[in-house]
């Protein structure tokens, strides 16, 4: 049942990538525990606007855990402490009266801050552009049932494909590595017969782009998978390593 709590927020404010940022403290009273974390920030922003102050910039869109737009590093965890949720699915009932909540942006060299809690994750798009697709034009494709795919394989591909591209993996990683994200796409497409043909080329191109953009080297600490809101498995990283190394050894 709904009750309300009082909380203290320490929020990172930063004008742009070049400026120095700092924490600012806000007190909020009577926050309904049924409200979501982002709705709590909405309330704070309404208050700031009412006081003629600049609202806090943060990214969000679908507010149901699927678009991958929301971010936020909350009390030391991307998307908060609770597992398998995005920030927009986090509810205030997970916090206690009197809690101090520290909110930071994703911090990673490849994700520069745009303003406050908003960061630029364009690097993930660039990696996808390097090879995260099957090269097929519109039209002229065979009947959808022409190639049977076992349910197990289809399900495994689907599990990898659920990645929402939120960036929590790189944000959580002490090495700033994007391997979980890249491996999810490489796995999905390498598992399916349609994607196998290009698997080697894809793995090489995506890894090269990932390295070029300044992500770190994976040391298999697994923080990415532990924090991933979609529970993308580390075994995808093993598959990526396999695909990449086999491709390189064949060169």
């Amino acid at each position: 049942m709904a009750k309300s709590i009082n909380i203290t927020l320490k929020v990172w404010r930063q004008k742009d990538a070049k400026s120095k940022g700092h924490f600012e403290t806000y007190h909020l009273e009577n926050i309904s525990t049924d409200s979501s974390f982002l709705e709590m920030l909405d309330i704070l922003n309404e208050k700031l606007v009412d006081e003629h102050k600049e609202p806090i910039a943060f990214d969000h869109d679908c507010r149901e855990g699927i678009c991958g737009m929301c971010s936020l590093y909350i009390n030391g965890h991307p998307h908060g402490y609770e597992s398998e949720v995005t920030t927009c699915q986090l509810h205030m009932r997970k916090f206690k009266d009197g809690d101090v909540i520290t909110v930071e942006p994703w911090r990673s060299r490849a994700f520069p801050v745009i303003r406050d809690l908003m960061v630029d994750r364009g690097a993930y798009d660039k990696i996808m552009q390097a090879g995260g697709y099957i090269s097929v034009n519109t039209g002229g494709t065979p009947d959808a049932n022409a190639i049977p795919i076992s349910k197990e394989i289809a399900d495994e591909a689907m599990d990898a494909a659920t990645c929402i591209g939120c960036g929590a993996c790189a944000a959580a990683c002490k090495n700033g590595s994007a391997m979980l994200f890249v491996s999810a796409k490489v796995s999905q497409l390498a598992l399916l017969p349609q994607g196998k043909l290009e698997a080697a080329r894809r793995a090489k191109a995506m890894v090269a782009k990932m390295d070029e953009l300044g992500f770190g080297n994976c040391t298999n600490t697994g923080a990415c998978a532990a924090e991933c809101p979609k529970s993308i498995s580390l075994s995808n990283i093993a598959r990526l390593n396999r695909e990449f190394l086999c491709a390189k050894l064949k060169d």
Binding site: G21, E104, R107, G176, G214, N217, A223
Partner: peptide, 20 residues
């Protein structure tokens, strides 16, 4: 390389996930 990839600003609060 990995430290550089983290960027200039460090997190103020870090809390190791239990699976790590």
């Amino acid at each position: 390389q990995n430290r550089a990839a983290r960027g200039a600003d460090r997190y103020a609060v870090v809390d190791k996930p239990k699976d790590v």
